[in-house]
Design a protein around this nucleic acid. Structure first.
Lengths: 128, 128
DNA sequence: CAGAATCCTGCTCGATACTG
DNA sequence: CAGTATCGAGCAGGATTCTG
């Protein structure tokens, strides 16, 4: 990528496009669920086990939203006990690369950010 | 990009890395401010003019957070009237490419998402 | 011009309890 | 097993007012 071209993609329509996608992935669990489903079909309980800290309610809500937006498919097997499997759709899979790009950025720059933040706090503290 | 490798970058530490970055960019205005400052130094009022809908309070808060995290630099000129210029730092600039990747994804897939969502709503409605 | 301070509202998230 | 229902805390974000 040559970089630095057309940020108009972000600013273009007054931010509506970028806001649409942020609204979709920026809650606490969505990206984690998507990453966990990468090339895997998983049941509800397995997902919950593999995502530390997520509550039933939040996992359900996240999955419903993803299903509604067509990023995740939900398959119910009429067995006893009940079995439900979740998997990424093609659209869902396509979200992985840009998400990884973001994660790479985070890993590379979080130390700097943390340092800058610490310095800022200190300045604020000593100013009082 | 070969894609589909190591989503462990996202899930690795129980989502702390990805959450750190999401916490930084997922509010309503941050990415818009960053995109607007791409290769430009701008004053407070110019920023506000170029970002439709942002309030003074929100623009101030967003800029302070970005400054604190070292993504944006703030320069005060002791003139009358006061002049303050904002610009991206190197770290700030480096956020543009992954943000663009996300925007590209959004532009490509929002139609599908919107369609899926509409279909889902309709099913829910007719079920009642 | 570039903000700081204050008030208020809605929504996200989590804990808890219950169900087919 | 795979959810739904309900309640409550907390915070993000907006409108408004005031200042160096």
């Amino acid at each position: 990528m040559s970089g630095y071209e057309h940020t108009c993609m972000i600013r273009g329509d007054g931010g509506r496009t970028i806001r649409t996608i942020l609204d979709r992935i920026c809650d606490k669990w969505t990206l984690l669920v998507v990453a966990t489903l990468d090339r895997k079909r998983l049941r509800f309980t397995d997902l919950q086990r593999q995502i530390p800290g997520v509550s039933q309610r939040m996992l359900t809500r996240t999955l419903r939203n993803l299903e509604r937006d067509g990023l995740v498919s939900r398959t119910v097997y009429a067995e006893v006990p009940l079995r439900v499997e979740y998997a990424l759709t093609g659209t869902g899979q396509s979200l992985i690369p840009p998400a990884l790009a973001l994660a790479e950025w985070a890993i590379k720059h979080i130390p700097d950010i943390e340092a800058s933040r610490a310095a800022y706090e200190e300045r604020a503290d000593s100013a009082e």
